[in-house]
Design a protein around this nucleic acid. Structure first.
Lengths: 350, 350
DNA sequence: TTGTAGGCGTTATCAA
DNA sequence: TTGATAACGCCTACAA
């Protein structure tokens, strides 16, 4: 089948070890054979067998990446960030999609270990109460870095979710909105809990009263959930005048509900999401949002993992929080400021 | 380090080969030792070393996937489609991002072969004139399936791009638009050329004159390119009254330019894109589009690859074209139909 | 400067 | 029913 080291050796009347040494450019091989070997390699189309090499070197140059859903732009961009760092360093990525299924995650993890990957990046579907699974993660001898979703006592790189919630909510309040509601993601996910914390903190800081009715739990990835939650909020006896949505998809759903109610975000109501989705600026009303810096999260996670792989000794646990950026667009316009504008202006007001 | 077969064998006073046979559930091993082995495996936390296994079985259960850009929703969804088929079949994906760089693609291909992947799915950055690279692809002994981008004499799964162009353009014409322009992707990419062919075919079919000025080449992934092209079209002496954009991002850019010119798509002008992006319905004007069925493309590509891997003999070349679906939304509304509507209505007309 | 021998962890073949 | 033995393709001492 494929050309092996032995085939080259036979062809040249050399031994396998000489050819191997020559290929590695070892100094104790004569220039003549070096040349001879490399030209024959070229000629015969030799490709080293990484599987055999890995078996003996105990290094695969493969990183495992476990994420809940490939088709969410968040994870796709984190993945790209990982790749931009790992690829130049000579590592390739083995991809695992858990579909938010913790059992599947455990299985993929076993598979990756069995494949002898050099390191693992994980956005876990487990929550902090899954202590046995977390203990398993902690006891791994393969370096591991969590991305996006935090679990205690493990290396972590992700957004600063409390700051995200705090800045988003503070922005709405500073714009003059007083009754700020929050549509959160599933609170079992650390990011959702963190953003909610930040929201609460901002209310306290600005001495805005907290109405329990103003907090609704939804799902990060479903516009329909955001729409439904928003509809409920608008039906309250005293509805909110601003919404901090925990994700852009939630915000987009909320936007639909708001428009359907005949209200105009950025004027009658303040709205901000999280994620800085590529198409936020092109929505019916351009969406204010918190940029988590997704690609950077992926890059930092990969950098940390490569560092961990580099050291043989177990280093101290790292916890890297990437600072968010506030992106202000039309949907969180200043309260009352544009009330007199003809609404059809929105067509031109890009 | 990790527990090996030998450790279990020693622990039980059995030979390595017996333990191996027991683990494989071979019939010639007594039930008693079967149980003994499997309980010890559990107890000692044994995980087989896939690298060693692959070396001897000549099977890695890994598929290589080479795509130009992870962060484009198109490829992310194709990837997901691939995974939904390959994962249940016991295959994992090794991911490669070429950033549209043909040299990098060649390098990734060599890497995958060196890693002994069982099959490869490729969205190539090469164009049909790169005959040496294509010849290399054809001569591979590892099964290969192209996705999305066609190259001659290779297995292929992708959208039916000519039909995409034909249906999109026909739709605009049927809506009453007469001067239909086309903003294409880079014509070196087969999909862009195919869609353009379909556009031309529709013009002929409906006896619509073809103006060379009405065809502008742009880039699939850049909204700014669409915006610029659209601006140029609107400045023409007799500007078009409809635009077939070769991608949703191009269409979104065009949408911006149209709105900035004070025109309303779906009323003054017809606009349709390609891709059925998740957020098409939520744009300033809901975007008509051609759904390529991305996930299905990925699934079919994976199915074909698995079939090729299954046969030992080389089977005939396959060429699978996935039929597109026309998705009609506001941006391609019937010419003149809503001209009398107050434009502010668009706020409610969701 | 080159070759020999042993081993990485597993599976496969055959003998016991 | 089990166990030696030899691979798989490569790397690394150490010997020649």
């Amino acid at each position: 089948m494929a050309v092996r080291l032995k085939d080259i050796a036979d062809h040249l009347g050399l031994s396998v070890s000489t050819v191997s040494a020559a290929l590695q450019g070892r100094a104790d091989i004569s220039k003549a054979t070096q040349k001879l070997v490399s030209s024959t390699v070229e000629e015969m189309g030799y490709q080293p067998n990484s599987v055999a090499r890995s078996l003996i070197t105990r290094k695969t140059n493969v990183l495992g990446v476990i994420i809940p859903d490939l088709s969410r732009s968040f994870f796709a961009e984190v993945l790209k960030g990982i790749d931009t760092v790992s690829s130049p360093a000579g590592y390739n990525l083995l991809l695992c999609n858990t579909e938010e299924n913790p059992a599947k995650e455990d299985e993929m993890l076993r598979m990756l270990l069995s494949r002898q990957v050099d390191g693992i990046i994980l956005a876990s579907a487990h929550n902090a109460s899954d202590s046995t699974s977390i203990q398993t993660l902690r006891s791994l001898s393969t370096p591991l870095v969590l991305v996006d979703r935090f679990l205690p006592s493990l290396n972590f790189v992700g957004g600063d979710d409390e700051m995200i919630g705090f800045q988003a909510t503070s922005h709405l309040i500073r714009q003059g909105y007083k009754r700020v509601a929050h549509i959160s993601g599933q609170l079992t996910i650390s990011t959702a809990a963190g953003r909610r914390q930040g929201y609460l903190k901002a209310l306290r800081r600005f001495q805005i009263p907290l109405y329990p009715d103003y907090i609704i739990e939804s799902h990060y990835h479903e516009e329909s959930g955001g729409e439904e939650a928003m509809t409920r909020l608008l039906r309250l006896g005293s509805p909110p005048d601003a919404i901090f949505a925990a994700s852009d998809p939630i915000a987009i759903g909320a936007l639909q509900a708001i428009l359907e109610a005949g209200l105009l975000p950025g004027n009658d109501l303040g709205l901000i999401g999280v994620g800085n989705h590529r198409y936020g600026p092109y929505l019916r009303v351009p969406l204010s949002t918190m940029d988590q810096q997704r690609t950077l999260i992926g890059q930092e996670a990969a950098k940390l993992l490569l560092k961990l792989i580099g050291r043989t000794a177990r280093s101290r646990m790292k916890n890297i929080a990437i600072e968010p950026k506030l992106i202000i667009r039309g949907s969180s316009g200043r309260r009352g400021k544009v009330a007199s504008l003809d609404r059809s202006q929105i067509l031109k007001d890009l």
